[in-house]
């Protein structure tokens, strides 16, 4: 009887030490779920979801304080990815936050720009170059198309332009599921001689 108590007690102590040790040694930095969710968000930092940026929205989703359908730039794709990650239902995009639109960047009409630096202050990713009273310009390759710089511009010289499609970004279409074939780009031979 006594030995049994001793053995159980000993085991409990050993496990306690091991667990305590690993809790210190293998401590997880940050919240991995928030990071994972943040990874799926488009990082436009536009605030259309009602949170001040992508990370805060990710945190809200992780705490189940927000639905997964609040991000218009991410659109349907992001909702699907989030649903898969969090095992939640796929729901349509919340129309109150705006609709999903074609991917775009903005450009500054450099003739009109007065060099007020207001847009520079609005850009969440520092993708605008310029100085006071100097013409500004946008680093197009970095611009995420969040459009946050548009309202502050006093002379309305920032213009939304859809991203130019070229061969490097061209995509094959998904075939229609059943029925008449839409794959006329393919040269496939028919099989009725088989």
């Amino acid at each position: 009887m006594l030995s049994a108590i001793l053995v159980v007690g000993l085991l409990a102590t050993i496990f306690g030490i091991v667990l305590g040790f690993s809790a210190v040694k293998f401590k997880v930095q940050g919240d991995p779920l928030v990071e994972k969710i943040d990874k799926l968000l488009p990082q436009t930092q536009c605030g259309q979801c009602g949170y001040p940026g992508c990370k805060p929205y990710a945190a809200a989703i992780a705490n189940e304080a927000a639905e997964i359908n609040q991000c218009p730039p991410g659109g349907e794709q992001t909702i699907q990815d989030l649903a898969a990650l969090l095992n939640r239902e796929i729901i349509p995009l919340n129309p109150e936050n705006g609709a999903e639109k074609e991917k775009s960047v903005v450009i500054i009409d450099e003739e009109t720009c007065i060099g007020c630096t207001l847009c520079i202050q609005a850009c969440p990713i520092d993708a605008i170059v310029g100085a006071a009273k100097q013409m500004h310009t946008i680093i197009e390759s970095e611009c995420t198309g969040c459009d946050l710089c548009i309202p502050p511009c006093p002379v309305d010289c920032i213009i939304i332009t859809p991203i130019k499609k070229d061969l490097t970004t061209w995509q094959w279409a998904k075939p229609t599921e059943l029925g008449i074939n839409n794959s006329d780009k393919q040269a496939q031979v028919a099989t009725d001689d088989q």
């Binding site: 943040d38 488009p42 990082q43 930092q45 992508c54 969440p124 970095e142 995509q171 279409a173 794959s183």
Partner: peptide, 27 residues
């Protein structure tokens, strides 16, 4: 055509992830 679609979709996603990672770093 299903495979071509999948391949180009994967490439597209990869481009997007790269872009959003860059945007996150910049932000």
């Amino acid at each position: 055509q299903y495979y071509r679609f999948a391949k180009s979709e994967i490439w597209k996603r990869e481009r997007e992830t790269q872009k959003s990672d860059a945007a996150r770093d910049r932000h």
